[in-house]
C-alpha cells in the first residue's frame, strides 16, 4: 500500500459518501444516473469475487464490502425507495448502457492477463469501470445545471482513478515485477473521459459560479 493508492481509495470512498449524503439529505436522486450506478454495482460484483476466497487484509476486505454494499444500496434506493425513486429523471437517463456491458465483456474475452474465469471477469470489471461514468456524464449534459453535491460526487469519482495512475507509476518504479497494463491503460482512458468535466468544474470553481456543462 502506498500513499497514492490510499489517497485514491479515500477519494473513492468520499465520492460514495457524498452521493449517499445527497440521496439521504435531499431524499432525492435527481441528476443521478441509475445506469451508471448499476454499472458500478456490476463492476464491484465482478471484481471482488475473491472477497470470500482470498484474504489480503482487513482494509481490503472492509473496503470491498463497503463498495459492494453502497453500490447495491444506491441502486435499490433509486429503484425501490418510495420517495427517492420518484425523483429519478428516467427520461434524461437514456444511455444504452447494455452496449457498454456487451462491448467491455467482448474486450475482456480478447484482452486479458490469464484466460481464467476470474481473470476474465476482473478484466471485464476494469474495462467496464472505465466507461461506467458515460451515462452519468451524458445525463449531466442533458440536465444542464448540476446540483452541488452531484458535481462533487462526479469530481471525486474521477479524481480517485487519477491517484491510482500515480500509484501504478510509483509501483512500476519501486517493485521489480509490477506490470498491470490492463488496469493502467483502462485507468488512463477512464480519467481522460472526465477531462472536460474537470475543465468545467474548475471554471465554475474559479468563477464561483454554478457548474454548467454545455449541451
Amino acid at each position: 500500500m502506498n500513499i497514492f493508492r490510499l489517497a485514491g481509495d479515500m477519494t473513492h470512498l468520499i465520492s460514495i459518501l457524498v452521493l449517499l449524503l445527497k440521496i439521504y439529505a435531499t431524499k432525492s436522486c435527481s441528476g443521478i444516473s441509475l445506469k451508471t450506478q448499476e454499472l458500478y454495482a456490476l463492476v464491484f460484483l465482478t471484481r471482488y469475487l475473491d472477497l470470500l476466497t482470498d484474504f489480503i487484509s482487513i482494509y481490503n476486505t472492509v473496503m470491498k464490502l463497503v463498495f459492494i454494499g453502497s453500490s447495491l444500496a444506491i441502486v435499490w434506493c433509486m429503484r425501490r425507495h418510495r420517495v427517492v425513486r420518484r425523483s429519478y429523471d428516467k427520461e434524461l437517463d437514456t444511455f444504452r448502457h447494455y452496449f457498454l456491458i456487451a462491448a467491455t465483456f467482448a474486450l475482456a474475452v480478447l484482452v486479458y492477463e490469464k484466460f481464467t474465469f476470474r481473470e476474465i471477469l476482473w478484466a471485464f470489471s476494469i474495462y467496464l469501470e472505465a466507461v461506467a461514468i458515460l451515462p452519468q456524464l451524458v445525463m449531466l449534459q442533458r440536465s444542464g445545471n448540476v446540483d452541488n453535491l452531484t458535481g462533487k460526487y462526479v469530481f471525486f469519482l474521477g479524481a480517485y482513478r487519477a491517484f491510482y495512475i500515480l500509484n501504478w507509476i510509483y509501483r512500476y518504479f519501486t517493485e521489480a515485477r509490477f506490470t498491470r497494463w490492463i488496469a493502467c491503460v483502462s485507468g488512463l482512458v477512464q480519467t481522460a473521459l472526465y477531462a472536460d468535466f474537470f475543465y468545467y468544474y474548475f471554471i465554475s470553481w474559479k468563477n464561483n459560479a454554478k457548474l454548467k456543462l454545455p449541451a
Binding site: 493508492r5 481509495d9 473513492h12 471484481r47 475473491d50 482470498d54 489480503i56 481490503n60 473496503m63 470491498k64 463498495f67 490469464k114 481464467t116 476470474r118 481473470e119 476482473w122 491510482y164 500509484n167 498491470r180 488496469a183
Partner: peptide, 10 residues
C-alpha cells in the same frame, strides 16, 4: 503462497 490471482488493489 503467491495467489495466482494477484490483484491486491481495489
Amino acid at each position: 503462497a503467491a495467489a495466482s490471482f494477484d490483484k491486491d488493489e481495489l
